[in-house]
Design a protein around this nucleic acid. Structure first.
Lengths: 208, 208
DNA sequence: TAGATTGTTAATCGATTAACAATC
DNA sequence: TAGATTGTTAATCGATTAACAATC
């Protein structure tokens, strides 16, 4: 249906969703693009432009109904169905992400944890038993997996990803410090903490 | 000195740095913008344009010396001096980040961990004793702090940030699920995991 | 009806790509 | 010198902002 929406717009949608969620918590019923623009520090024009990529959610002379707009953006972002997630690499970051996914968002569910270290086998993190990476093939046969979170060293990221793509995985949440080369039709969302930290360090330099 | 460089360019610099680091490990001595463009899946034009924001690092007919370019970008990104980091909120994510900063990058050093939970007081994570948030004022008097990592719930992020700004903090690495409102001259680098996950979920929807 | 505010078109601004002269 | 490849200017493309007619 809606197509050709720019990545820049997509990246802003979760932020709108977040602000609308807060308005909802505060019991605000309606909001104009102008009010919202002041809160979010973006232009009202951009808000209207962004939203109209997906449809006319507002009403002239009234503004936007917060609950309605929240729900609509939720639908756009796929908050209507459950995404099943598994995670490979149960180190410090892996454990944190496992817990994070568990508590943070209702539409994501962690259904499996995998590692190569035999000493971790069978241990529980966030209520889920750690399995060995060898067992991935078997697991994938019997479970629907929508997203794979990769919290492994950069060296193993590429081979593990290839193996998982082979098994039908279409989406990665990649914390490894590499850009995965994936075939058409496979999605990678990177969280490059190191890049983020270096951007910060650059900006600090500019401050002085 | 160099000024008015767009955020888009800055965000790409750590990625160049990463690729050059890998080339260096592989013993590659020189590279042309064209070769690099093929590896990185960006245009050669963009690479040359980006780099020339900071200076002419290449040589006609030769290309770029990998070691030299790596070092130069390192300087640009502030890899020449140590950045002292403290972290507030030693939960799962906080612990992971503490370890991450310890191992990942040489130019960052974790020098303090803080939490509000008295049961955590004195416990060690990544070789650092956890202190209470009450002790922040005293700590800040006696230590130079360049970056504060916030791994706390969104409710406490704003007040803690305000308090730290009061104490002279100029840069935040924010993992809390809010956009901090900070005065001019204070930098916030956000890592919004939830936003990232929702972007991924959007893209999955589009796949089908 | 009058006022408010959207949806949308047009204008501006910025970022990316192409082209090529300079030069190693 | 001839070939390669940069640095940089110009052209294109896309994204943001401004403006305003449509309409609730």
């Amino acid at each position: 249906m809606e197509k050709g929406i720019s990545p820049a717009v997509i990246r802003r949608m979760p932020r709108y969703y977040r602000y609308l969620g807060e308005l909802l918590e505060d019991g605000v019923e309606r909001i104009s693009s102008n009010d919202l623009s002041r809160r979010m520090h973006v232009t009202a024009s951009q808000i209207r432009q962004d939203l109209n990529n997906f449809g006319g959610f507002g009403q002239q002379g009234y503004g936007y109904n917060v609950q309605f707009l929240y729900d609509e953006i939720g639908k756009i972002l796929g908050q209507t169905h459950m995404n099943h997630v598994i995670l490979v690499g149960v180190g410090n970051l892996g454990q944190a992400i496992a817990n994070y996914v568990k508590f943070e968002k209702l539409s994501f569910k962690m259904i499996g944890l995998f590692d190569i270290d035999p000493s971790k086998k069978g241990k529980e993190v966030s209520g889920i038993k750690i399995q060995m990476v060898d067992e991935l093939e078997e697991f994938m046969k019997t479970h629907q997996v929508d997203i794979v979170a990769l919290t492994i060293p950069k060296e193993s990221a590429e081979p593990i990803a290839r193996r998982l793509i082979e098994l039908g995985v279409k989406a990665f949440w990649n914390f490894a410090h590499v850009d995965l080369d994936v075939p058409e039709g496979v999605i990678v969302e990177n969280v490059h903490l190191s890049d983020s930290l270096m951007t910060l360090s650059y900006n600090i330099t500019k401050l002085k």
